[in-house]
Simulated assay, not measured.
Amino acid sequence: MSALLIIEQVLNGLQFGVMLFLMAAGLTLIFGVMGLINLAHGSLYMIGAFAAAAVAGATGSFILALGAALAAAAIAGALIEITVIRRLYGKAHLDQVLATFALILIFSEGTRWVFGSFPLFLDIPDYLSGPVTLPGGIQYPFYRLTLIAAGLLVGLGLWFLIERTRVGIQIRAGENDREMIAALGIDITRLYTLVFAIGAALAGLAGALVGAIQSVQVGMGEPVLILAFVVIVIGGIGSIKGAFIGALLVGLTDTLGGIFLPELFKLFMEPGAATQTGSALASMAIYILMSLVLIWRPTGLFGARA
């Protein structure tokens, strides 16, 4: 196995990880502040992807497509929070799961009704297409490098919002003691809507960015949602830093496991059986990682200890 292949797969893992971070950051923000289990978060990812594909097809502008993804997901998130989610605060988690699962069905069938059952395709713009030569002569797609950079910039902006702004102070205070900040005159209802819209916008942006390297189709958000839950369990519920570290660990584990594990088993088994066994174990690697983290630290890497 060549060093070039390893470096390329590490970059692929980083790209996958930062996209998972955009998804998981909004999810952990919503759960940390509101205590809400939102299974419909994957539908917001799908809405962002479809909005981007539709606007790009109509205008030919990738920038407008990203703006449409952010706006559509944020508006959808705000409407969900106002009409449905607001009635679930303080309810049992089972009620939240059932209500948000119903939203998945509604959004899936609504998207199929508007766009049809066939997948859409979002083309990579010319100025982001093609390979770029990295040190060592490595050829790597420029768009995937752009995804890594975009994810890191969004993560930095989210950190600045949470840690260095007045809104961020309110969000962190709402996470720790929502009754107290309501008593201090903060409009907790507006704050919850804002947090939900921010989380939805991050999911929509991730869907739009990933939509350019895979087809945009109904139900595309649910597999990513499962991985996002794994990320926040590993990183710690309510921790943006935990979501970032957890997303990178999941991205690298999933990508590198699919390469190294089959090669490792070839040392002990026949090539065909080694490939089958290694691939099966690679598909379980992130869940094994999650189990090991929870055995060591049940609240996640950066979750608050009881």
Rank of each mutant, 00 (worst) to 15 (best):
Y192Q: 13
Y192P: 00
Y192W: 07
T193W: 00
T193V: 15
T193K: 05
V195A: 07
F196W: 10
F196V: 11
F196S: 06
A200C: 11
A200K: 11
A200L: 11
A201M: 12
L205P: 11
A206R: 05
A206Q: 04
L209W: 03
V210Q: 13
Q214A: 14
Q217Y: 15
M220I: 06
G221V: 00
E222C: 02
P223V: 07
I226E: 01
A228K: 03
F229K: 02
I232L: 11
I234W: 00
G235P: 01
G236Q: 09
G236N: 09
I237K: 05
S239H: 10
S239E: 11
I240E: 06
K241T: 15
G242D: 09
A243G: 08
F244P: 01
I245H: 00
A247V: 01
L249D: 08
V250C: 02
G251Q: 07
G251I: 03
D254S: 15
D254Q: 15
T255S: 12
I259V: 15
F260M: 09
L261D: 10
P262H: 10
P262V: 08
P262G: 10
K266L: 08
K266E: 12
K266Y: 02
F268D: 04
E270G: 12
P271T: 13
P271L: 12
P271Q: 12
A273G: 12
A274D: 12
T275Y: 13
T275P: 00
Q276A: 15
Q276N: 14
T277R: 09
T277W: 10
T277L: 15
G278L: 08
S279M: 13
A282H: 07
M284Q: 10
M284H: 05
M284G: 13
Y287Q: 05
S291P: 00
